[in-house]
Each structure stands twice: as C-alpha cells, then as structure tokens.
Design a protein around this nucleic acid. Structure first.
Lengths: 210, 210
DNA sequence: GCTGAATCTTGACAGTGTCAAGATTGTGGC
DNA sequence: GCCACAATCTTGACACTGTCAAGATTCAGC
C-alpha cells in the first residue's frame, strides 16, 4: 500500500520501529537497511535522510531499548525512598521483567549488534545513566549495611552481570527442570540477590504475579 | 604470493585462523568470507569445501575460542584437588586472564557474532562442558561450606555473569581511576568472589604477577 | 508566492553470500 | 602403473547489500 503523501511525516521513528521488528525477526545477519525501508514503505535510500549509515540506525534502536530499560528501573525505584533493600530488589525485578516481557528489544540491545558504541553519544549517555542508577542504589545499600563496603561500581557490575547471566539462562531454557519445578521466578531472583546481601531478603518482598 | 600446490593441505584450520584475524580487525560487520579467503590465499568460493556457510565458519572460530577457555580453566583447576576454594579462585583467575590476554578471541567468542548457536553441536557441547566445569567447582564449594546451599547452576551462572561483567568493565576502561589506583587486578577479583563466599578469601591466594 | 532546505526516489557502483560447472589433485582397488 | 571416484579448489554467475549522486517533491520562513 503506497503512501498518500510524498513525505512520510515521521519516518525516523517509523524506521526505528520497523528496524526493531526486522532485527527481531531476521537476526543481526539478516538485518538490512533495504528490508527496513520496505517494511516502512519507503524507497531503499530514504533512511539516509535520517541516519548516516546502517550502524547509526542500529544505534538508535539500541538506544531506544536502553531508554525503556532505564525508565522501568527508575519507575521501580521511585516508590521506595529510604528503603535501599526494596530499591535493590525492585531494580533487579524490573531488569528481569524487561528482559522477559520486552524480550526482542532486550536481545537487540545486548546482542552486540551495535559496534563501536563509543561513536554514538546518545547510547553511551543512556547506558551510563542506567549504570549510575544501579551504583546509586548499591551505595545506599552499603550505607545501610545491606551490602558489603567496597568499590560501588565493582559491586554494581557484579549484580548487573549476575542478573544478565540469569536471564540468559532463563531465555535459553538452560535451567534444569529440578530447579524450575522447585522455585518460582521470584524465589530464584531473591536467591541470586541474597548472595550479595548481608541480611537475608524476605521471601514476600516481591509480588506473586508479574 | 600464490601457493605452489593446487590443494592447500590444511585450509580448514587456516580459514579458522584467518577468520579470527579478520574478525578481530574488522569487527562482525566488516567480516566477509571473501576477505578471509583472500587472507588465506585461496579463491572466494574455496571455503565452501569446508564450511556450509558464513555462520558455520563463525561457529568454528567461536568453538575454538571456547575450547581454549575451557582448557585453561581446566588446567587452572587441576593442581588443586580437594581444595575447592583454590579451585574457585583459580577458575575465575583463568577466566580473567583469558579475557585479557586472548582478548580478540574472547571478544569474538562472546560478541554474539554467532547466531542460532543451537545449530552448531560442537559449540553447544564445549560451552556446556565449560559451564558444567564451573558447576562442579561450585558444588564442591557448597559441600565445603564455602558457598551457600542452593541450586548450583544458578550459583554458577551468577559467578560467571559477575566475572563477565567485570572483564567488560575492565576492557572498556570503565572502572574509575580511584578504584584502579587503589586496588590490583587480583584484589578486585577477590573482592568480586568474596561477595559469594561464606569465608573471607586470603589476599595472597593469587600470584602477584600475571 | 518565492526560495532554500528538508525529504524522498531513482539509478548506479563495488562488495557480499552462495551456488553450479569445471579444473586439479589425492586415494583405494586392481 | 593405472583407472575411477571423491575431495578440493577455481571460475563465473546471480541476487542482494550499503552507499552515494542526481533529481523530484514538498515544507517553512519570509
């Protein structure tokens, strides 16, 4: 179905959306600008009015994903001022929820599809912002004797990396059935976080359903 | 320089080596079968005698990387029979050393360049073998009350993920100078592992130099 | 309503993955 | 030693890709 107007109107964002779909369906190796352009209903060179090259579009898609992740982490923390442990658990829960519910976007964002990240300031900015958010929570927990003293950035990346490994195992179906039958997602997550905390995390700190 | 013989003799392994070099130099997006073939001194379609397609060559390169990682982890564990804590630290140290010294291969192996991993049994086999090796060490530590009780595969992926995040931070130069000036690599690693262990890890458990 | 800028299309080019056909060489059986 | 067959490698072709240049169309400010 050809467009009515010569100008698209919102092609930039349409390309980001179409690009995310193509990337999710075809994978990084099957991803092409021409497919994205066709999916958005424009000619094959139209994207060059909005993106310098293919990597720039991938950067925009990844940046969008990181922004959504940051916002959901931020929203999860917000209700728990002065409750560092709740903040920690809520942040982790938001991360896991994002990975499981927005799985395509999550995979794209962390797939390594974006190369030379440093060339894309918006991506660097939002990724550092998200990381700093975790560092802040970690430092609050350290002050409250919930996490051990020590370099907060190391501790933050430890927790982040742990969660990332966890959701990778989950989404690839690599967790043994004996574990899956015995524990809920919430219980597994609390087990993961409980490794770090100096106090034991209450089992009912998370809502039963997602 | 053209070869003397029509047959190469060991083209398959030569392509794996050339491929790793091209992948390290050009990145995933700049990686092409034709460049690899040229680098190995053969015609552009010669690789198809040894690999079904581009992904199959990438799979072979990634598999080779995982094999090297597994072997160095295995060699690190070997001297410490019945010393679970030493095994844990040595495994982690081997992982970090591999990431820092064999950086190109490490990046390729974990870059996500290989898609649909499940289609490549050799890769699945060696990656699971490496993971099971960590699980074994974790279970030994649990028996010795060095790590908490609980699902050993979750604990293994927690530690693996933590280490992965750690080396990512290291190789991207994202660790603050205040931390870098204050702690050695060994001390940072022990800090990371110390989060998980029920006993404090002796500072001198690792050799001073790499 | 005129003009320059923004947006989009068309056409072209070198590079790409992949396959088919053919050339060259190794290998097992006699 | 020789023959047939399989393995290996080259050449040539095809559709598809990223990217750029030139032109068409529309928008925005005066």
């Amino acid at each position: 179905m050809p467009r009515k107007t010569y100008h698209h109107g919102d092609l930039k964002n349409a390309l980001i959306r179409s690009g995310a779909k193509v990337l999710a369906k075809e994978g990084v190796s099957g991803f092409s600008l021409r497919k994205v352009a066709k999916h958005a209903g424009v000619s094959h060179a139209a994207p060059y009015a909005h993106f310098a090259d293919k990597q720039a579009l991938i950067a925009a898609i990844s940046t969008e994903g990181f922004k959504r992740l940051y916002e959901s982490m931020d929203a999860a923390i917000e209700p728990f001022a002065d409750q560092p442990l709740c903040q920690l658990v809520a942040t982790a829960w938001a991360y896991v929820q994002f990975a499981l519910h927005d799985m395509d976007q999550f995979k794209i964002t962390f797939s390594g599809a974006l190369e030379r990240e440093k060339d894309y300031p918006a991506f660097v900015e939002i990724s550092q912002q998200a990381f700093r958010r975790v560092v802040t929570v970690v430092e609050a927990c350290q002050k409250a004797d919930i996490l051990r003293a020590g370099p907060s950035d190391l501790l933050a990346v430890a927790i982040w990396g742990e969660l990332h490994g966890f959701v990778s195992l989950l989404t690839e179906g690599q967790i043994s059935h004996t574990v899956l039958d015995q524990y809920s997602l919430q219980e597994m997550l609390i087990f993961m976080l409980d490794q770090f905390t100096l106090v034991r995390i209450p089992k009912n700190i998370l809502p039963k359903d997602s």
